[in-house]
């Protein structure tokens, strides 16, 4: 079994240096590994692909917002695995599934397979976005969903370019918090 450790770690280091393209490729590739990991785990307890996708997204959000906790001197796989497993155990606890259903696994397992057959998660982006402040929502919609540049977004939303960036950062944090809240409802 060849592990994607080396490739992914290179992407992670570039991403920590602020390289947006690497960051995106990293999250994309990790999401496939996480999907395969969670589908495998959840299949054993009779849960479906949508729930696996919820977990994939929770873990991707955690990788993004907790990336400053990665120590570049250490391999990446155990770090990703610890996050993936933490989110899995959290999910099982929420759903009152006995923890004994999930055997202890090795860190490599999280990178062992990938799966790009993505499903829709149960998080409704449009509905969650409604709960963001207006300028924040405007910034995210403009840059991401409508593909405008930061300068265009600034003009459209009536704020400065740095304001757009700050709004996007805060907005994504709020979205992550809303998703976390939803999973706990």
């Amino acid at each position: 079994m060849t592990s994607p450790e080396i490739e992914l770690k290179v992407l992670m280091l570039a991403s920590l240096n602020g390289d947006a393209a690497s960051h995106r490729v990293l999250l994309d590739r990790l999401s496939r590994h996480l999907r395969a990991y969670y589908k495998g785990k959840l299949a054993r307890i009779g849960r479906g692909a949508a729930e696996a996708e919820d977990l994939v997204q929770e873990a991707v959000l955690a990788v993004h917002f907790k990336r400053h906790t990665y120590d570049p001197l250490e391999p990446l796989t155990p770090w990703v695995h610890a996050i993936a497993r933490y989110k899995l155990i959290d999910f099982l606890r929420r759903n009152r599934t006995s923890l004994t259903d999930v055997p202890i696994d090795e860190a490599d397992e999280v990178m062992a397979h990938d799966d790009n057959l993505s499903a829709e998660s149960s998080f409704d982006l449009k509905r969650l976005m409604q709960r963001l402040p207006e300028k924040t929502r405007c910034s995210i919609v403009a840059v991401k969903l409508d593909g405008q540049s930061v300068a265009e977004a600034a003009e459209r939303c009536g704020i400065s370019e740095s304001g757009v960036k700050v709004n996007i950062h805060r907005g994504l944090k709020t979205l992550a918090a809303l998703i976390a809240k939803e999973t706990r409802a």
Binding site: R24, S118, D124, I168
Partner: peptide, 15 residues
């Protein structure tokens, strides 16, 4: 929400 959409959104926040 699709995971691709989420990854897209998060990548604007790369720094």
């Amino acid at each position: 929400m699709k995971t691709d959409e989420l990854v897209e959104m998060l990548s604007i926040d790369a720094k």
